[in-house]
Design a protein around this nucleic acid. Structure first.
Lengths: 140, 140
DNA sequence: ATCACTGCAAAGGGTTTGCAAGTTC
DNA sequence: GAACTTGCAAACCCTTTGCAGTGAT
C-alpha cells in the first residue's frame, strides 16, 4: 500500500499523521499479523525511545477507526492486521503464527446469513491446526 | 448433560472429579458462555470461599483436556463453553453477549478444506453485530 | 493557536505461581 | 498413601491513565 493511501486512511478518521503511526502501519503491513510485543520490538528499531503506551494507544485508536483489525486468538494475545476484505485466518498450533488464507468468503457469508437469519456486520473465521509447511504458512 | 457423563468426561482426561469442577461445568452448561468474572461470581454462590485461582486453574486444565473450549473475542475477555460440535457464535456488539447459532457447519468446513487446501483441526466462526432481539439472542 | 499525540512514570487490573492443608482414587 | 486439587497470598505480569512537553494542521 502506498504512503499516500496510508496517510489518507489515517486522516479520514480525523487522526493525525505521525511518523510513529506510519511506521506501525508499515510494520503490520509487512508482517501481516503482529501482537503488541512484536510490534514494540520492531518499533524500537525505528524509534529507540518509543513507549509501549504509544503502541497500545495507537492499536486502539487505529482499530476503532477501522484502519486496523484485532484478531483474537485462543490462549494467546490478539494480533493486529490491516483491515481488508473478509478473509480466513489460519492459526498454526505448532509455530503459533497466523496467516491469511486465500479464499473468497462472500458466498459463505451469504450462506450463513440465510441459514442463521442473523444480519451480522462482521465475520471472523479462524482455522487451527499444524500448518502444512513453509510454502503454505511460515513454519520452517 | 447428565451428572455421570460430566464425571466421565473429567475422569477420561486423567483428572479428578471435585465438587468445584462439577459446579463450574454445570454453570457453564446452564449459561452457555461465561467469562472468568461471571464464573467466579456464580461460583461464590455455591462455594463462598472458592478462590479465583481455582477458577483460572480449572479453566486451563479443562480446556487443555478438551472438556471446555475458549472462545476469544475482540476487545473482551474470552468466554468458555462446553466443548461440543462445530458451531457458529454470534457476538452481540450491543449487549456484549455471545450465543450459539443453530447452523450445520460440516459442509462449510468441507468447502473451506477444499478451497484453502489446509487440513485444519478446529474452525471458529464468530459473527458480530447488533443481535435481532430477545427471541434470537439475549438482548432486552 | 489549537488540538492531538508522544513518552514517561505511576497506578490499576488481571493472571499466575508456590505452598500448606485438604481431597480423590 | 500417592497424586492431585484447593485456597491463600504474593508475585508477576500486562494494560491503562495522567500529565507535561512536543508535534501536526
Amino acid at each position: 500500500m502506498g504512503e499516500h493511501q496510508l496517510e489518507h486512511f489515517i486522516r479520514s478518521g480525523g487522526l493525525k499523521v505521525t511518523p510513529q503511526r506510519l511506521m506501525l502501519l508499515r510494520e503490520i503491513e509487512a508482517q501481516g499479523h503482529l501482537d503488541v510485543d512484536e510490534l514494540f520490538r520492531r518499533a524500537q528499531a525505528h524509534f529507540p525511545s518509543i513507549s509501549l503506551a504509544t503502541i497500545y494507544k495507537n492499536l486502539h485508536t487505529l482499530s476503532e477507526n477501522g484502519i486496523l483489525r484485532e484478531v483474537p486468538l485462543p490462549g494467546k494475545r490478539s494480533v493486529y492486521e490491516l483491515h481488508h476484505a473478509e478473509h480466513v485466518h489460519f492459526f498454526c498450533t505448532e509455530c503459533n503464527k497466523v496467516c491469511d488464507v486465500e479464499a473468497d468468503m462472500s458466498d459463505i457469508a451469504d450462506m450463513l446469513r440465510e441459514r442463521t437469519g442473523y444480519q451480522f456486520d462482521t465475520m471472523r473465521v479462524t482455522l487451527g491446526g499444524p500448518c502444512p509447511g513453509p510454502d503454505k504458512c511460515m513454519r520452517e
